[in-house]
Design a protein around this nucleic acid. Structure first.
Lengths: 149, 149
DNA sequence: TATTGTTATACTCTATAACTATA
DNA sequence: TATAGTTATAGAGTATAACAATA
């Protein structure tokens, strides 16, 4: 069945289909850990920014404070993240627990294997151009968003 | 604030960020029409496959029958799509109304303008390689999905 | 039996708005 | 007044399961 000539050539639609498949693949790679890709992304942000606040976590993941809080509630409940006192008593400083740290290492390995397998259909040159284009496009969208806030 | 070295290099995460931005841009381009990108995609599928069933529509959009039905309910309520009798009396044959046809033309123009603007940061060669890579990656994911159904 | 459309229900993710406690 | 976290609520979007009509 035909989808539609305009859809086949549409950047947005093709990206959406690809992203849906990439997310499903990541979800599968994470099945042994019973955790979603978005939550692993949160762990990675905290790992890269120990002591960051929930608001900062939300900004890095482009979700709002309330959503960031739900993420942290889940990760804390799993024993992967700790809320610790921060210089500013209004804020929480987020840290990975020891368990969170070792779990993240294992998850990262699983995700990378899946990623590498998907990227293996591209030549090295294609992969490099592809990732550069993704970056350029993201910058382009970000610039547009600033012009029309 | 650092996101995370592993995330910066992650195909899945970068794709997700890009897709979120592309979707937001499409949503904005469609604001004058008060309709979501997913619903316009449904219109395009029906336009390309006049008389298709709801189940077929769902398959093309990779959603299930119940979700396809909600899409059609909305589009019918808007007067953009008609459910007509089908050779198989269990099924509906979906058609665009005249209004749906002309609305889709205008929406397509708006979407293409936004798409072209985003792609304008890529050289012609980059754009061609980028779209080819998207296709390759989708095929790769699809093949993986078949091996592990 | 299998399939189409339908309905009811629930789940996930996210957003908004209002509240508190601090700054 | 502005900000961090919290809470309650609501909205999309999608999925599952069961049902009727028909193949």
């Amino acid at each position: 069945m035909l989808v539609h000539p305009n859809l086949e050539r549409s950047l947005g639609f093709q990206l959406r289909l690809l992203e849906v498949e990439a997310e499903a693949q990541a979800r599968k790679a994470l099945e042994p850990f019973d955790i979603s890709p978005a939550r692993v992304a949160a762990l990675m942000v905290i790992d890269a920014n120990p002591g960051c606040t929930q608001t900062a976590l939300g900004e890095a993941l482009t979700v709002n404070r309330a959503s960031a809080m739900k993420l942290v509630n889940f990760l804390e409940g799993r024993g992967l993240v700790r809320r610790t006192p921060s210089p500013d008593p209004r804020a929480n400083a987020l840290l990975l627990t020891d368990e969170g740290c070792s779990a993240l290492k294992a998850m990262t390995i699983a995700l990378k294997a899946a990623d590498d397998q998907a990227m293996s259909v591209l030549t090295a040159k294609e992969a490099s151009i592809f990732l550069a284009c993704v970056g350029k496009l993201r910058d382009s969208f970000a610039a547009e968003g600033e012009n029309n806030p």
